[in-house]
Design a protein around this nucleic acid. Structure first.
Lengths: 243, 243
DNA sequence: CGCCCTATTGAGATTCATCAACTGCGGTGG
DNA sequence: CCACCGCAGTTGATGAATCTCAATAGGGCG
């Protein structure tokens, strides 16, 4: 049974109240759109722990809560009947998911690592929308950003080669985490997750990353890190300046 | 120069006021989300005509207006430097596009057929958001729907074969136009547009459609129509029940 | 009627998927 | 502490799907 499918109160193992500092989990000066939305709730949410590879909710479940990530990484994905899978997004600390007006989930959410979530009943979100002016605008801003991300993703899947997709993917992760040349980028997801995000097979992902390593564009200190030796080269690859 | 790039008042050839019946352009009982948003504007918008293959706005343009389609078909797409193109959406009568809080376009909009648009300055939209309660909610609902469409699109591009994509595409068009078995579906876009929507080449699109014709799943009375002889077969193909 | 643009069909090249073997690391238990 | 086990990742060989290049067909408009 997934969390959404469970009764709202059935968090017997984890009803702690969240420390206040989790409101602004990332070290940054400006409040994010996510911060603004959740500050307006005036409630800390229910803390939920999910272990690696467990499902948070399934496509088709009733949407009872909105979640914010306190720690860990989550993937949003859709499955076809025959097991094929498309990962739509990777989410990490501070990110929000499951925020929707629809009453049914249209994708599943799964924990890539052990994850701590803050769960907010949809009714609380609805109340905040009514009572806090500006929350609607922030939510709109959030989904607009997600929509634009999705358009980028479409271009990657529809029109880029395997190597271009991987380069774009690494640049996307670098931008999200604020990494720059020489930094070590955490890669919390496995190769299969990357493959399913990029519309490739795990073997192709491995081969392309290995090739980039041979070309000294990236370094691979361990399975869950990648060193960005040459961002310009990555950018050139992503832009198709290869031939 | 695209429309957005032009001055807001430079519609010398088309400043007519739009007839009232355009508020609800499609024959349906219920008002669409689009209807609700534009009814709240209490203004008919400026009529703009755009000829086939002309650009309405470009990626990167300043976003000055929101558009609603009175007649014709529009594609939203993004271009890579080397000319590769990804079509993100096809829009037809009654559909809205260019509605954004951002001040820059993140895709281009191009006329697939001769098109008549209603243009609304973003300031009017902003006013409606402030003054008409519920408009925010309708806009949120609209973009949420677009986001879900985009997720479907991702699955098509990332994980479906050419034949599955074409079957899914035809079913999507059928659903949008309310067509059912035996109906003739209008296909206003050319083969290249379809290819760029599905992440395929024009040759592959032709071959797959020809194959479906040989299998009597569809009929091709002319280039811009397709007869849905067997929706169940299309559904089976889209679901991957092929092997 | 003829031209031009788009679509269609064919042949060969390419990219990526598939199938299969092997590696390496982390955890577990002797 | 070390050996074994299992899973995730990597690499190689082969094949299939789709792209590319090229030639032909068709349809609408002047």
């Amino acid at each position: 049974m997934t969390l959404d499918a469970a009764h709202a109160h059935d968090y017997s193992h984890n009803t702690d109240i969240v420390p206040a500092h989790w409101r602004t989990p990332r070290p940054q000066v400006k409040a994010t759109v996510e911060d603004k939305i959740f500050d307006a709730l005036n409630t800390a949410g229910t803390k939920v722990r999910v272990r690696r590879n467990e499902t948070i909710f399934n496509d088709g479940d009733t949407a009872s809560h909105t979640y914010r990530i306190a720690s860990g990484t989550v993937r949003l994905c859709r499955h076809l009947a025959d097991g094929r899978r498309q990962v739509a997004d990777f989410l990490s600390e501070g990110d929000v998911f499951g925020l929707t007006d629809e009453d049914q989930r249209t994708c599943s959410a799964e924990a890539i690592s052990d994850v701590t979530l803050l769960a907010y009943p949809q009714t609380q979100i609805e109340r905040a929308k009514r009572e806090a002016p500006g929350v609607n605008r922030e939510i709109l801003s959030l989904i607009t950003r997600k929509f634009l991300q999705s358009q980028n993703h479409l271009m990657m899947l529809g029109r880029q080669s395997a190597k271009e997709r991987i380069a774009s993917f690494l640049l996307m992760l670098a931008e999200r985490s604020g990494s720059s040349e020489g930094d070590t980028l955490p890669l919390p997801m496995g190769r299969l997750d990357i493959a399913d995000f990029l519309g490739l097979t795990i073997e192709t992902v491995c081969r392309v990353i290995s090739e980039m390593k041979r070309e000294r564009i990236v370094g691979l200190p361990d399975l869950h890190s990648i060193v960005l030796n040459n961002i310009d080269a990555l950018q050139a690859l992503a832009d198709g300046d290869d031939e």
